[in-house]
């Protein structure tokens, strides 16, 4: 394990560019996330929020620019290095992305077993502990994901993301598809987990309530660039017309 110099950002994106054909989705993204910080990236649909996360995770390779995690370069990393860097991450996918061929307990412990049938009794106990953390009971251990409600699936996915005790957790639209009460429960859960586990969190969302509740700092992605970032308390007082229009949900303004 590489020693991390003091003051090194947990995640740093420098002039990251990603194109799909002629469409330039990221056009020079710069963002730095400090250890223990919770940052939310806001922006409209199709502005490249998910692409940003996938570039950090090495699921997509940027066309140019640099992505570092604890000072280690992700872009161009060999698959073995990338696999080691990924041990630092947990990810809550927008739709949960639970494996529907497996029961809940195997989903939750997948990051620990990599799909192998190792010590089932112990793994069931680990799954139970993590489910308890997200407010779910052991009754669902043997259920398949399609037997759970949307909110429960999100929680199980959250339990799966935290089970390997990652240093960094990504939340991709954590409240999408949930009613306001369930969305607020997920926001509370994320906030308490981030505090309890002391992790660095990066959330992408277009839910302003969620962004303000989960994050210490908010950044707005527009036209492939971070056009504003600041503390969450400044979100409705940013002085940036694009941010103002977005957070107020107005149709008229500079964003077309």
């Amino acid at each position: 394990m590489m020693a991390v110099a003091k003051g090194t950002p947990k995640i740093k994106l420098t002039e990251v560019v990603k194109r799909f054909g002629d469409n330039s989705v990221l056009d020079g993204v710069n963002l730095s996330v400090e250890p223990g910080e919770s940052v939310a990236i806001i922006g409209g649909s199709g502005t490249g929020k998910s692409v940003t996360l996938k570039c950090i995770l090495g699921l997509l390779t940027p066309d140019s620019g640099s992505v570092t995690v604890d000072g280690e370069e992700v872009v161009g990393a060999r698959s073995r290095e990338m696999s080691r860097i990924r041990t630092k991450f947990g990810m809550l996918f927008q739709g949960g992305a639970l494996f529907d061929s497996m029961p809940v307990w195997r989903n939750v412990t997948f990051g620990l077993t990599q799909g192998r049938m190792t010590d089932a009794a112990h793994m069931r106990r680990v799954a139970e502990e993590n489910l308890e953390r997200v407010g779910l009971s052991r009754d669902i251990l043997n259920l398949r994901p399609n037997e759970l409600s949307g909110g429960m699936q999100k929680r199980v996915a959250l339990a799966r993301a935290i089970a390997p005790r990652p240093e960094i957790i990504f939340f991709d639209e954590p409240t999408t598809g949930l009613d306001p009460i369930r969305a607020d429960m997920i926001n509370d859960l994320i906030t308490s987990l981030v505090e309890d586990l002391g992790v660095t969190a990066l959330t992408i969302t277009h839910d302003m309530v969620s962004a303000r509740k989960i994050a210490n700092r908010v950044a707005m992605l527009y036209n492939g660039r971070i056009i504003w970032h600041g503390p969450r308390d400044r979100l409705y007082d940013s002085g940036n017309p694009y941010v103002d229009q977005f957070v107020q949900g107005r149709a008229d303004g500079p964003i077309r």
Partner: peptide, 21 residues
């Protein structure tokens, strides 16, 4: 279905090579 529901990406983030698995 695993591809469009991001289960293949989830495998990768859980440090499992989808190709081998």
């Amino acid at each position: 279905t695993m591809r469009v529901t991001e289960q293949l990406d989830a495998l990768t983030t859980l440090r499992t090579d989808a190709f081998r698995y």
